[in-house]
């Protein structure tokens, strides 16, 4: 697909449009960072006020699921960085393979998360009538666990869909490798990774010592 066809109003040159798209996504990522930070502030308040029960609950998360998923998402982020940078350098095959890897790894994360959630529910770690822990602050931990991982998973799913779409269109040559969309999606995906990098110690490594 020609580069000219990827040009949109009101832009007159694709590099300028691409720069604008990159700035736009960075600004949006800043807002996403503030979004998650609000929830993490709630986590921080609760942990500060009820450390004992909060950390006792934190020990109940499955550190292996968490760690494996962290590495999976880091690798997916690596793949996406390769896809975007290879695309920039017009290395078509490398870019497509990397996009495919990023999608597969993203899906793996979701599948593992699904298994983890099932185990959490079986262990009665969802706050409600049959909640397993009675210490003050324990239910708070799991409220934040479910909200933070759930909202993160939603963001991740959106990312997987976007990357899959890129892979499809680029492989059919409907999308040029220089398109701003690859760069924009990559930056979004890296933020999803960064959020998880922050959540990992907060949700999986707390209270272990």
């Amino acid at each position: 697909m020609s580069e000219a066809a990827a040009l949109r109003e009101p832009w007159r040159s694709l590099p300028r449009q691409r720069e604008a798209a990159t700035l736009g996504i960075w600004v949006f990522l800043a807002s996403e960072a503030l979004f998650f930070s609000g929830a993490i502030l709630g986590y921080a308040f609760s942990r500060y006020l009820h450390a004992h029960g909060f950390l006792a609950a934190a020990r109940e998360t499955n550190v292996w699921f968490g760690t494996v998923n962290t590495i999976v998402l880091l690798t997916s982020s690596f793949a996406m960085a390769m896809a975007a940078q290879a695309g920039d350098a017009r290395l078509r095959r490398l870019s497509l393979v990397s996009l495919a890897a990023a999608v597969m790894l993203g899906l793996s994360f979701l599948i593992l998360k699904g298994f983890e959630y099932r185990e959490d529910i079986e262990k009665h770690l969802a706050p409600g009538a049959k909640f397993a822990l009675e210490l003050q602050g324990a239910a708070l931990f799991f409220s934040f666990y479910w909200v933070l991982t759930g909202v993160h998973a939603v963001h991740l799913t959106v990312g997987v869909v976007l990357i899959a779409r890129l892979l499809l269109e680029a492989s059919r040559r409907e999308l040029p490798l220089s398109s701003p969309e690859i760069q924009v999606t990559a930056l979004y995906w890296h933020l999803v990774d960064i959020i998880w990098i922050i959540l990992y110690p907060l949700l999986y490594l707390a209270g272990r010592a």
Partner: peptide, 13 residues
Amino acid sequence: APAATRAPAAGRA
């Protein structure tokens, strides 16, 4: 120069 105008170099992989 923005990425899209840089000439793709063979040895950049």
